[in-house]
Amino acid sequence: MSAPQPLLDVREIEVRYGAIRALKGVSFSVGAGEVVALLGANGAGKTTTQKTVSGMLRPVAGTIEFEGRRIDGTPAHKLVDLGICHVPEGRHVFPRMTVAENLDMGAFRFKQPDPADLERVLELFPRLKERYGQHSGTLSGGEQQMLAIGRALMGKPRLLLLDEPSMGLAPLIVAQIFDIVREINRSGVTVLLVEQNASQALSLADRGYVLETGDIVLEGAGRDLLADERVRAAYLGEEIAAS
């Protein structure tokens, strides 16, 4: 299935929002260097899963291991030090800070931002270079998404969590962003991707998991899932109709 010692190993995690069980025992793993996609409809628990991995939420049961080390229950700001960088749903750039300041924030865990990282981010996203001194609240949605990813890269991620990077963006920009994610992955960063855009995600992902109301119902290699009848019916309906 995956590499013998997964980078991230999530076992039977259960998360509650008050009385509601958002995750009912989700297990999956991400091997070093992989791109793994979490798919599913709205409310399936994809974002909750990712938030739990990055420490924003605390599981009531189950374990999460990162490089063999238990990390469930560790607060988010400490997990950043391990190289777990989370690009949240909705981008969440700091709107009243400039692009430059946002990128600096990404490197907050270091004494100084690494100039080589900055150079690389601006190379990956030339648009950010053009907007460098501009307040990020004035950027377009696509530019904000690029900034959010760039900001995470400034933290030298080992595991990059991407939550719906395609949300609300034009298809051309989405393709661009997925290309860049592929490039980031090739440079050695492991990626855990949450997407509703299943065809885009699976064409990029090595493996995928399909979530349904807090449970994993299907898993497999990206290619296999892409061909799977159930996935096609449930999540690729639009694409089939269009093609």
Partner: peptide
């Protein structure tokens, strides 16, 4: 850095935590 952490928490506390801010 302290000032930037205050600004980040003021703007968006959960995201500030994702940057490594306590």
């Amino acid at each position: 850095k302290l000032g930037r952490s205050i600004r980040a928490v003021s703007e968006d506390a959960p995201t500030a935590a994702l940057m490594g801010i306590d």
